[in-house]
Each structure stands twice: as C-alpha cells, then as structure tokens.
Write a protein that binds this DNA or RNA. Structure first.
Length: 818
RNA sequence: GCCGGAGUGGCGGAAUUGGCAGACGCGCACGACUCAAAAUCGUGUACCUUCGGGUAUGUGGGUUCGAUUCCCACCUUCGGCACCA
C-alpha cells in the first residue's frame, strides 16, 4: 500500500473539524428525559479574570472525562458551564486599565468561552449562566428578599472586617491567616463599625455539621466542622452587686465553685456601669487602648495577659461568694456572651492571668490519677476532668458525671441552663463596591427598611457610575440612582447602596443552569425536579469554608422556604489539587510563571494536553507543572494513531495464543480503567491505556485482521474517547464506525477473557524471592507446592533443611519458612 | 498549641484486600535510520557487590511467615484553626 494513503496525525485539523461538527449537531445538549436516569455533573464555574489558566484545564478535564464516561454508561448527563462574573478583581483590573467593569468582564467572558471550547469538553452551552446578567441577578435579588421575608436576612450596626485595599467589608470566611488578611488581595483587614446586612447562617450551624446522605471528602468535612466549631456547655447567670444580670458561657460548669474572678471584654456594655470611681481612669485608659489595637495584636496568643480591675463585684450564684470583676482583652466580645467566669486552677488562660495579677487559684477538680492538688503551688492549670472537690453540695461528684450533675443542679435552681456555642458567625453580605448585584432594599424614613417588590426586580445596576473606590459605595455617589419611592407608602425613599457578596451569586448558580432564560422564577421546576440534586461536584478545596458552606446554607434555607427540596444540593464532592508553576510556586502573573494553555494547544493539540493534564499527577494532589512531559502523551497519541491506521502487510495468519493474550490484556485494562473512573483515579487511566497500546503494538503482527484485533481497537477507542475526544472520534470514523463515538456505550468486561490460563507464582524462602514457577491456572495447591520445592533457585536456599511452614497465597505467592 | 494530609529512583508518579517495590511517562545514556541534524524506532537506566548476593519506600521500634500498606514514638513538610471560655 502506498504510504501517501495513510493519513498523518494532525490534531489542529481534526480538533477544529470535530468541534464544529459536535456543535452543529448539538451532540452535548442535555434535555429532560424521564425515561433515562440523569446525572448532573458540575464543575466550579470560573471567574472571568481574562485568560483561562492551566489550572482551569487541570480542574475541568477530568470532570469532563468522567461526565463522558457516565454518559457512555447510559446516563442522561448534564454538564453545564457559566461565569461568576461579578466581583472585586473585575473592578480593580478595570480601574487599572480604565475600562468599564462590564465591558472588561464581557470581553473576558467571550475570550474564555472560546478557550473553553478549544478543550473539546461536553459543556452544554445552551445552559450557560452569567451572574452579572440582569436576568440572572434579578433572581439573586429575589432570593435576598425571600431570605429577608423569612427572617434569614437582617441588618445591624456592628464591628466588621474591612479591607483597606479593596475598600469593602468582608465576611469572616474571607479573612485568612495569622495576620488576618483579605482572601483576595492579601492586605490585613481592619475593624469598622458599619450597618451591614447578614444572613443567619448560624441558624443552620447544627444541620451543617451533619453530612448525612452526602459523599464528601473527609478533609472537607473536617474543615467545615472545625470552622463551625460547636462547643457544648452552659450559660450561667451571675449578678453584679448593682443587680444587673451577668451571663457567662462555659464548657466547664463542673468548675463553677472554683471561680475566683470574672472577666468582661473591654467592649462589654456593663464595663462602664460597674467600674468604681477609683478604677475609672485606669479602666477607661485600658478600654481605649484595647479598642485601638488591631485584632492581630490583640489576639496574639504569645503575648502576656493584660487587664484592669473594674472595682466592681459579682455574686457567684452557687456559692453566694463575692467575685471581683476585671476587664481584659483576652475575652472577646464576639464569642459567647463577651464575659467569662475565670477558673484559674483549671483553665490555662485564667491561670496566667491570675498569676500575673496575684489572684487566688482554687482547686475544685481532683483527677483520680494525680496527687492532691494545691492551688498555691500549681505551675500550670489542670484542665483534666476529675472528681469535684471544694464544691459545696456537689463535692465528691465523679468526673464522668460532673458535667451533667452540675447542669441539673443549675437548671433545678434557675441559675443557668444547657447551651451550645458556635465559632461560626452570620454571613456578612454587604459590599461597598460597584460591580455586584444591588441589595434590593429601600430605606424609608416612615416605613423603615422595605424590600423592593418582586415585580420591580431586578434593581438594575446603573452603567454611568464613578466606580473608582472611595470607601463609600459607588452607588451612593450616583446623582439619582439611590433616589426612589417607598414601595409601601409611596413617599420619598433611598435605595440600599451596597451590593452583595459574590458568594451569594455562586450559591445558586447550579440552579440557574437548569433554565438560564426562565423568567417565571429562579428556575423551571420541571428542570429542577428532573436534574437536582447535583450528582458530582468538582472543584478546589480552598472553598471548603466559603462557597461550600454558603451553598449548603443557601440550599437548606430554600428548602425551608419551600423553594427547593432535599437536604443537600450536592451529593458527591471531589476536590482537585492545585497546579503550581515550574518553580513550584503558585502561578501568578507577577511571578511570571504562568503556563498558557493556548500555546500548548497550538503546539500539541487539545487531546495531548488533556491527556497530559490527566496523566501528570494525581488529580487530588496537583503539583508543579512541567511542560516537557507533554511530549510523552503526544508521542503516545501518535503511536495510537499509527496502531489504528497503519495496516500490517501479511497474509492473514493469526496466532491463536496471541489472540488469547490480546483479549486478556484488553479486558483486564477495561476492568482497571472502569474501576479508576468510578474512583476518580484519573492518572492511572492514561497509564493503563499506554500500557495496553504498547502491548497491542507488540501483538499486532500476530493478531491483525482477526476479530480479536477488531474488538481490541473498538474497545480501545471507546476507553480513549473520554480522555481525548477528538482523536477517538477521528479514528472511529476512519474505521467506518457510526457517528458518534461519544454516543456509544461503555464496553462490558468479558470475565472469561480476563482469566489467566497460566499463572506465575513467586516463591520466597524466608520472605525473600528465590524463584518463580509457572503452572496452569487450575493447578492444585499441592502441585504448586511441589513445583516450588523443586525450583532450582529455591533448592539452593533450602540447603536440605526441612521447611517449618509453607504459606500459600493462591495464584500469587508461596513463602517457605525454614 | 490543636486538627487534618503528605514523605517511594535524577523528576512526575504506580503498587485494587498485608504478598514480586519502582507500572506508565519524563529525563538521561547507548544503538539503528540519516551526508548531517531533528523526528522516529530499539536497548538500558535505585544503590552497593568479592557477582554468591546484599541493601533500599522520611527515622527508630513493634506486630507478622511476609509491611510502602497495620500499631507506637519521632523528624520533615503542606493546609486549616487558634486567648472561642
């Protein structure tokens, strides 16, 4: 055959060709079909920052491959894509380049959509949703109003985290690290007192701690559990000598008789009232200093305890004792009640404070395995549980019962009750920036806060705004936008000029994909009933305590408002790792280590890049990028190409034993690859396919032209198609098989073909490999033993000794112990 | 300090239930093809060795006939939380 008739592998040509054909045919459209089982595969939507990053491809390619795999397994798969288009970076970049954020964002979206298409993923672009689109944020606003009407949104004046670079407030989740910096720009935050909108995430704290019915990684569950930070204890009611109630939260009610002082946070409202005339100056100075400090300075755990005696006293409800009240900055106004009962003998922080200021340390817990404790001699606190001592009527209560017994005592005497505290805070929603969904609320002097009626939504974000940040909301500076009439009384009123945190937009994007053009509600219930919940959700772990908590909260709130069903929005979650630059640093423009996927597509084709992204590291781990490795997957695809298109010039002789070997390898690989798709172990899918193509190339001369060879190529291309969809489609067509390979079914493993007819058993002597024997697969244990004992290499090491023990692992290994 | 990952050749990684450590690929070396180079193909590639073998999965112990895998202690490293009462 003339060589010119064999086509060469030309990825640029075939990728473009098939992408156009698939799009024209609507091959990846997903429609409701009650006859078929559905699978909603979702990958976290990108932020349109300008350029698609190799990290996006790393995240999305395996998700795409798995969505394709599920489709081949008979599922009606929906795999949508969209853009998280509101947010700070758009604005910051727009400021730098002096283009309108809207223009900048939509330009980027258009560019990124093309880039996404070049990877040949099975996205159903008819379902694309863009959060900055009025027909999208109309419903973001509608949800806000719903939450408000159901008591889940409220506003209050409170000290909040403010990023001085981004010029806006941030939610607690968006402040990271030891230095409490802004999650987006890295600037340390400061505190500001502002009137802000919050969502009541804390109302769902307990439910968010339950992961029943969802298959999420242990790691994410642990992160969320720690973040929510549930602790069980009691609220105990003390009184000041002036008669004011002073409640404290404690996890150790069993130490109540050991309280020797109390501490109020400097911001606590009672500080002023209880401070005595003599202490007034000192207290005022201390409070002023504490307030001036940043959280970082104040909450540094290594600094020495500071504080001031207020001159005031409280009464211990259980003992009637008179307890001095101090104020100190190690007590936080934001946790519990902002006041604590201090038990220095059994709490290290209280202990340090007591030693510093010469306060009494009184032992009230005696752990069974410790010598008798004496408060005066302790060098550190004893937080261990144990028998209660010096505790009035409760003395002698064993450690195991102490907590419950004291609670019973408190409740019986009206002195306190069981209580649970969470570290989780309500979600701060207001942002003082332009590029976001306006908060659909009107402030009326007569009627107070009034939501914008549904028929007036969306509250449109105006285009003609000075969006350079000033620290004030840009919408506030617009000459007319904020002026409106009160929906309730018709009088003059003002709009809320803040916009919403973009995590609000992304809390429900998976619902907008269901019906992005629907205008009777946020989503079409028919689509919802069929597709929801999301079956497989993939994305980065960095969202564990932000997006992934918000979206769970959001779903549960919708459920309770009767808008959604089910307890969880996403059944199965899997996280990919992060791709680093070749210098092992995080990829960033400023470091100059960003790898541009477009260049790689141009040089090697999308298929080789897809295969390399899947192959080069564990998906859940990520790691430093190395462009040289892509040569390997490119060569492999070229070998696969040659394996399929290059004929073997021979006279039809087929070696039957080679056929058996071929079929065995094909079906063993199929079994392995199927397993790996099910378990999100993507890199070994490619290595198994490489191994198989190596073996097939070796067996090709002896099997070419046989039905087994045809079967091998057929199965090979099917297994290949989710990883490298274009070359698989091209070769499928080359062989004259019916279009499209992507609508074919996943092949079934032939269990008979998988069976080995000969087995090689490793023979060990004292745990060391000394030989191996090959026998028929059905050889008896006795026969295997006999063969092993006769093996040349083995005999040498037995040195005539009698085996003490022979361990047989069927079909694998024999260990002879002498 | 607390919680959770991870440590395997020059590199990325593999080893499905406690059973042949290093699959697959990169890189490197040598060879074939070529006037030559590239590309491609082939062979080799943990360490030591007296060529019998011995040693190797962060370190040290343990369980076991047998441990990358299980247990204990420690080291390194990454991530999260941190005066949360």
């Amino acid at each position: 055959m003339a060589e010119s008739q064999i086509p060469a592998y030309n990825p640029a040509e075939i990728e473009k060709k098939w992408q156009a054909r698939w799009e024209a045919d609507g091959l990846y459209h997903s429609d409701v079909d009650p006859q078929r089982p559905k699978h909603y595969a979702l990958t976290m939507l990108p932020y349109p920052s300008g350029d698609l990053h190799i990290g996006h491809w790393f995240a999305m390619t395996p998700s795409d491959a798995r969505a394709r795999y599920m489709r081949m397994n008979g599922y009606n798969v929906m795999f949508p894509m969209g853009f998280d288009a509101f947010g700070l970076p758009a604005e910051n970049a727009a400021i730098k380049k002096n283009v309108h954020p809207k223009e900048w964002t939509y330009r980027n979206i258009n560019r990124m959509r093309d880039q996404l298409k070049s990877m040949g993923a099975m996205f159903d672009w008819r379902r694309e949703a863009v959060s900055a689109d009025p027909k999208y944020y109309r419903w973001t606003q509608w949800f806000f109003v719903q939450l408000y009407q159901h008591g889940l949104a409220y506003h209050k004046l409170s000290p909040v985290d403010w990023c001085p670079t981004c010029n806006t407030t941030l939610a607690r989740e968006q402040v990271w690290g030891d230095d409490r910096h802004c999650e987006r720009c890295g600037t340390p935050v400061i505190k500001k007192n502002l009137d802000q909108w919050f969502f009541r995430t804390t109302r769902y704290a307990d439910e968010l701690l339950s992961y029943e019915g969802i298959n999420w990684p242990e790691r994410v569950r642990v992160l969320q559990t720690n973040w929510i930070g549930r602790s069980e204890g009691a609220v105990v009611k003390f009184h000041t000598e002036q008669g004011d109630e002073l409640e404290v939260f404690t996890t150790r009610p069993d130490t109540l008789w050991g309280v020797t002082f109390m501490v109020l946070a400097p911001e606590h409202p009672l500080v002023k009232k209880i401070t005595s005339a003599e202490q007034k100056a000192a207290v005022e100075q201390y409070v002023a200093e504490a307030v001036r400090q940043t959280d970082v300075q104040r909450e540094a755990t290594d600094k020495e305890k500071t504080g001031v005696f207020t001159g005031g006293y409280a009464v211990n409800p259980v003992s009637g004792e008179r307890i001095p009240i101090w104020t100190a900055d190690y007590v936080l106004m934001t946790y519990g009640t902002g006041a604590i009962m201090a038990v220095p003998a059994h709490d290290q922080r209280d202990f340090e404070f007591a030693r510093r200021f010469g306060l009494e340390v009184r032992v009230v817990i005696q752990p069974e395995d410790m010598e008798a404790l004496d408060g005066a001699n302790l060098t550190e606190s004893v937080p261990a549980h144990g028998k209660m001592v010096n505790s009035g009527p409760m003395s002698g209560t064993p450690g195991a019962e102490a907590f419950e017994q004291v609670l019973k005592y408190l409740e019986a005497n009206g002195m306190g009750k069981r209580a649970v505290n969470y570290r989780l805070r309500d979600w701060l929603i207001s942002r003082q920036r332009y590029w976001g969904a306006p908060i659909p609320m009107v402030h009326c002097e007569k009627c107070g806060v009034v939501p914008v009626p549904e028929e007036q939504l969306p509250v449109m974000l105006p285009d003609d705004v000075e969006w350079r940040p000033t620290g004030e909301s840009p919408l506030k500076l617009h000459p007319t936008w904020r002026l409106t009439t009160c929906p309730q009384c018709g009088g003059a009123a003002e709009r809320d000029t803040d916009t919403m945190d973009t995590f609000m937009c992304s809390s429900w994007y998976h619902l907008r994909y269901l019906s992005p053009d629907y205008d009777q509600g946020p989503f079409d219930p028919k689509e919802y009933d069929y597709w929801m919940p999301v079956d497989t959700y993939t994305g980065g772990i960095e969202h564990a305590n932000m997006h992934l908590i918000y979206t769970r909260f959001f779903h549960k709130a919708l459920r309770d408002m009767g808008i959604a069903h089910g307890d969880e929005p996403m059944l199965q979650l899997r996280n990919q790792g992060m791709v680093l630059g070749e210098d092992s640093e995080k990829m960033s423009k400023s470091r100059g280590n960003v790898v541009a996927p477009d260049d790689l597509v141009q040089a090697y084709g999308a298929d080789a890049l897809r295969a390399y992204l899947i192959f080069f590291s564990r998906w859940d781990q990520g790691g430093p990028w190395s462009s040289s490795g892509i040569d390997g997957t490119f060569r492999w695809l070229r070998r696969v190409w040659a394996m399929v298109v290059e004929p073997v010039g021979k006279d039809g002789f087929v070696d039957e034993s080679a056929v058996r070997v071929l079929r065995r390898k094909v079906h063993q690989t199929l079994r392995r690859v199927t397993h790996d798709y099910e378990h999100f172990e993507f890199n070994t899918i490619v290595s198994s396919l490489m191994e198989l193509s190596n073996e097939m190339a070796r067996l090709k001369p002896a099997t070419y032209g046989s039905p087994a060879w045809g079967e091998a190529v057929d199965i090979y291309l099917r297994m290949l198609s989710p990883v490298t969809p274009h070359i698989a489609e091209e070769l499928w067509a080359y062989l004259g098989k019916s279009y499209s390979i992507h609508t074919q079914s996943w092949p079934a493993v032939d269990m008979e073909a998988v069976q080995e007819d000969e087995i090689t058993v490793v023979v060990q002597v004292n745990g060391k490999v000394r030989g191996r024997v090959t026998l028929a697969a059905d050889a008896s244990e006795e026969a295997v033993k006999a063969a092993a004992l006769e093996n040349e290499g083995v005999v040498k090491f037995l040195e005539g000794k009698t085996p003490r023990q022979i361990i047989v692992v069927p079909k694998k290994l024999i260990n002879i112990v002498v």
